Simulated scan of single mutants.
Amino acid sequence: MIRLIAIDMDGTILSPDHSISTKNKQAILAAQSNGIEVVIATGRSFSEAFGPVSDEGLNLSYICLNGAEVRDEFGELLAATHIAKNDINEITSILDAHTIDYQLFIDTLIYTKSIKDQIDTFIQLAEAANQIPPVDKIRQEVMERVEKGFIVQLDSFDKLINQRGNEIYKVFGTSYNRQQLDNARNALQLLPGLAISSSGAGNLEITNHNAQKGIAVEQYANSKGIAMENVMVIGDSYNDLSMMVRAGHAVAMGNAPAAIKAACTEITTTNEYDGVGLAIEAILQQQV
């Protein structure tokens, strides 16, 4: 009996144009009306995640930044797990040595040295799913976040790290050079206390070892008195793997890599064709 559903965003609940389809929305509302709790589990910051969900009038809780932050449906912070300040300089030194561009996530803000990198990040996510990225819409979304102050461009991160190094949730590295990414990943994995994942072939997501989607989903379920065997998760990438191996029912999107599909109990259609909605409808049919 499924009592909690955790859903990834990019490549999963979001269509290629970064919207939530009517079918996906209706399925979530149907799940909620049948007493099933639904939570977003994303690598995005809260400010990036809240917009597309609230635009559809959905009231959901949020596991953000791969589990580094948990917020309720009102946006109130429930839990926070930061990277140890001592690790930040080592992380950035490794990324700099391998010419990896990166962004720092603090609270609801994203700090970047290039707005273009932010735009390229979402383009890469779409390309990794073998889809045509809606470049104009992505650019518009990013620039709106810049105007609202959620994305801050800095020439250097030195002062920020010195002043707020103990508040960093996630370091997000991007590169089109796969060899450089692999070399950086190998070096980062030698640092204890970190979780190294990715949401696409062109990025690295670095968080505290305790900040992983699977850990956060399990803690959230426990807080609601729900056993993991009664949890369903839906995702498409490697940063979803930690929750897929813990949940009683794991669903891979049709656009997920083969390794992610192999880790799941079910495969649905792609995010272009309402994969989330269909997976939820199938569960509701069984239970209702």
Rank of each mutant, 00 (worst) to 15 (best):
I168G: 02
K224D: 09
N166Q: 13
G173H: 00
F172N: 09
N162P: 02
G235P: 00
D236M: 01
K170H: 04
A187S: 14
N162F: 12
Y169L: 14
H209E: 10
A187C: 09
G165V: 01
I196V: 14
A201S: 15
G235S: 03
V231P: 00
T207R: 02
V217T: 05
G225L: 12
A227N: 15
K213V: 06
L188F: 09
A221G: 06
I161Q: 02
I215S: 04
G202V: 01
G225M: 14
R185A: 10
I206G: 00
Q219P: 04
Y169N: 09
S223K: 15
G235N: 01
F172P: 01
I215D: 02
G173E: 02
S197D: 09
N210G: 10
G200C: 10
L204M: 11
G165C: 07
N203L: 05
K213C: 06
T174E: 06
G235T: 00
A211M: 09
A184I: 03
Q180T: 09
S197A: 14
N208Y: 08
N186M: 13
V217E: 05
G193S: 10
A216H: 05
G173F: 00
L188N: 02
I206S: 01
A221M: 04
A187K: 08
A227P: 02
Q189V: 08
I226N: 10
L204W: 03
L188K: 05
Q180H: 15
L204A: 06
A221N: 04
K170M: 11
G235R: 00
N177E: 14
V233D: 01
D182A: 15
L190M: 09
I206E: 01
L194V: 10
I226E: 12
L188Y: 05
G225I: 12
N203I: 02
G193R: 07
G202L: 03
L181W: 06
D182F: 12
K213P: 05
P192C: 09
S223C: 12
M232W: 04
Q212W: 07
I226Q: 10
N162A: 15
M232L: 14
A216Y: 04
V233K: 00
S198D: 13
A216E: 05
A184R: 01
G193T: 07
N210S: 11
A221P: 02
G235I: 00
V217D: 04
S223P: 06
Y169M: 13
E218T: 08
Q219M: 13
I234L: 03
N186F: 13
V231T: 04
G193K: 07
G165M: 03
A211I: 04
R164Y: 12
